[in-house]
Amino acid sequence: MAKVKYYYDSENLAYRKIKVRKRKKFGVAALFLVASALFGFLCFIVLLNTPYFETPKDRLQAREIDNLKLNFAILNKKMDQVDDVVEAIEDRDNNIYRVYFNTSAIPDSVRKAGLPGINRYKALQGYDNSQLVTNTTKRVDMLSKELAIQSKSLDVILNLAKAKNKLLAAIPAIQPVRNENLKRLASGFGYRTDPFTKARKMHEGMDFSANVGTPIYATGDGVVKNADNNTSGFGNHVVIRHGYGYETLYAHLSKYNCRAGQRVKRGDIIGYVGSTGRSEGPHLHYEVHKDGNVVNPLNFYYGNISAIEYVAISKLANQENQSLD
């Protein structure tokens, strides 16, 4: 029941009841309703921002976040596997490929070095799952960097392999006269008796005795430097420049099958056995030069003879007999 209020009427010397106007009553009621509505709205907003009250949209976002966390976890496991594969490739690269091609290994300080920049991941910070996203992004960036370094390294190895193949093809690795065409190995590399002066002198090659017209083969890939008889004592001769410091000389030919400037392959016929120049009989005088120095040709016959044949030739070549030139 509403409280009745009175006021004192001094003119009539009596207490009279205070009558509230209807408009004022309506205003008070309206103000109460507005205040109640505002209070209720504020309470609703507060509830929306508490974990105790979830809207359908909140539940959908929560599921999406959980899904993303799961996907990030799966991605990190896959990156663990990729890490293992990359490390295995790096290990083979350093300890097999680069060792084989006599190239220095790439140190871990280069492979695992951090990425440049003060804070490359500033844009990813400040969120609820920033740590997860940032760490995963860092791993992806590091893997990309390591793969780029490894890709460049394999390009280097490929170029070295191509160069190695050219080197192997250039090295004089076969006999210039086939065994079936040989009468005998007349003389080897070293000090021998000169057939003309009978003095003991250095014989800088090997003499292969064979019939006139027997084919002579290029012992490695290269370019014909000379095919003439301008050098005293050698008669008709051919010099092949193989590259990598190697040159071979074939002397006393009966005729040529190549010309200066011609590119030849190992096994190509470059001329035929003869006895031109300072020679005591039909044979091929063969020399191998490395970096301007004569070397024993016997050390290079691994391309077309067996181990047994090599031992037999080695014994004959090391006998101190008379040379044919």
Rank of each mutant, 00 (worst) to 15 (best):
I89N: 10
L147P: 04
I270S: 03
P215W: 06
L132I: 15
I65M: 08
I305R: 03
K166T: 14
Y250V: 10
V86E: 11
K138D: 07
N159A: 15
L124Q: 05
M1D: 12
F189W: 13
N159Q: 12
K25S: 12
G222H: 08
T55C: 01
I96H: 04
N94D: 15
V273Y: 05
A260Q: 13
F26V: 13
N76Q: 10
V28I: 14
P176F: 06
K152D: 13
S306E: 06
F300N: 14
M206W: 01
E90D: 07
E280V: 14
M206V: 15
R184S: 10
L47S: 07
L182V: 08
I18W: 05
L31F: 11
V34I: 15
N181P: 06
M142A: 15
L298P: 04
M79I: 05
L249P: 01
N293K: 15
V46A: 12
A260C: 03
V85P: 00
A173P: 00
N318A: 12
T193A: 04
D108I: 03
V20I: 14
Y52R: 08
F39M: 11
N299T: 10
V238F: 02
G126K: 03
R23M: 06
S232Y: 13
D325F: 11
E204S: 15
F39V: 09
V85C: 08
V156D: 13
D268P: 07
M142H: 09
Q319K: 14
D128I: 11
E90T: 11
R120G: 15
A317W: 07
K162H: 01
E180F: 08
F72C: 05
N304R: 06
N257I: 08
I89A: 15
P297K: 06
A199V: 09
N318R: 12
P176W: 07
P56R: 05
A105W: 01
Y286A: 08
I106Y: 00
F44V: 10
V294Y: 15
L147D: 05
S144T: 15
Y302T: 12
I157Q: 11
A105R: 11
V46Y: 00
A317G: 02
K3W: 06
Y286T: 11
Y52W: 13
Y246H: 02
S323F: 01
G222N: 03
N165E: 12
A218E: 02
K25Q: 14
A169D: 13
V140E: 02
S10N: 15
V156N: 13
A218S: 14
A62D: 14
G188F: 03
E11I: 13
E180W: 01
T137P: 01
N179Q: 09
H285F: 03
G190Y: 07
R98E: 09
K145F: 03
N321P: 02
G126E: 07
Q125L: 04
